[in-house]
Amino acid sequence: MKTYVITGGTDGIGRAVAQRYLEEGQEVVIVGRSADKGEAWLDAAAQRGAVARAHFMHADLSRLSRTGAVLDSIRSSFAKVDALVLCARHFRTTRLVTAEGFENTFAHFYLSRFVLSHGLAHLLESADNPVILNIARPGGEGEIHWEDLQLAREYDGHRALMQGGRLNDLLGVAFTQTRPGTKVRYVLLNPGTVNTSFSGQYTPDAMAQLDTIRRSAQSVQEAMAPILKVLDDPPIAPLSAFVRGVPLDPHGPGFTIEEARRLHLHTQRLLAG
């Protein structure tokens, strides 16, 4: 039996992935901010006779203390993790600083993925064919604001997400660079625009734009094929990137080792502080 850990597992792509592998007889851990949705997922699993293999961890991953608690719980409960699927994303039109002093999108979309990727590496190494699937936006054109990574001077929700995609690209590069010889496969994947719940805080204007996007977005089921392909048969290369199933060179512009090292060291200093 394999063990899957899925953030953002109460909605959209994360929930669909969780449901797929639970139905296949695997052990599935979902992490989400909605206790009601998590309990509903557990109830559905119980009705199918799969409650022993279904686990829900309630956490707002913009809080590093909660991310750390999830990490500790997984470490104490499981001997291995076969796949870590990072789906959680939360849009904010206005800037919010968490109680721990981090900009919300930066903490939720990047820092939590850094902590879980590196924090679960040992359990992943204990699996036969482990993979981290980071569903972000590889190869995006967002700018990294090196002198203001948390956008204190000029915040914009779209800019924060676009930068977050770039930071996750560098997270993948740094993961493989700092763990030479690892058997964990790190995969960055952009599924395209998908009609999910679009979790977040929106102004009326932003919500109107979102309604327009929804009308042309692909369904969750349409987006699943490249995701399941990666999870069922992880690539051989230590680092891979895909846009809607089409391979993207993870060694070109936007994936430089120098920038990845710079971000890795900066993140370590932030977390240590």
Rank of each mutant, 00 (worst) to 15 (best):
T3L: 03
T10N: 02
D11L: 08
Q19D: 14
E24M: 11
G25Y: 13
G25K: 15
V29L: 14
V29I: 15
V31I: 15
D36H: 13
W41T: 11
D43M: 13
R48D: 10
A50Y: 08
R53F: 03
A54L: 06
F56D: 08
L61H: 00
L61P: 02
S73K: 12
S73E: 13
S76C: 05
K80F: 10
V81G: 04
D82E: 08
L84R: 14
L84F: 14
F91I: 07
T94W: 10
L96V: 11
V97P: 10
G101Q: 14
G101K: 14
F102M: 12
N104R: 11
T105L: 09
T105Y: 08
F106A: 05
F106C: 03
L116S: 00
G119C: 06
L123A: 03
A127S: 15
D128M: 08
D128H: 08
P130F: 03
V131K: 01
N134G: 00
N134Y: 05
I135T: 02
P138Q: 02
E143M: 09
E154V: 04
L161M: 14
Q163P: 13
N168L: 05
L171R: 07
G172Q: 01
T178H: 12
P180C: 13
R185L: 01
L189D: 03
L189Y: 05
P191V: 02
S197R: 06
G200Y: 01
D205T: 02
M207V: 00
M207E: 12
A208N: 06
Q209N: 11
V220M: 07
M224Y: 07
P238E: 00
A241G: 13
F242L: 08
R244G: 01
G245C: 07
V246G: 01
G252F: 02
G252T: 10
P253E: 14
G254C: 05
I257R: 13
L263R: 03
G273Q: 08
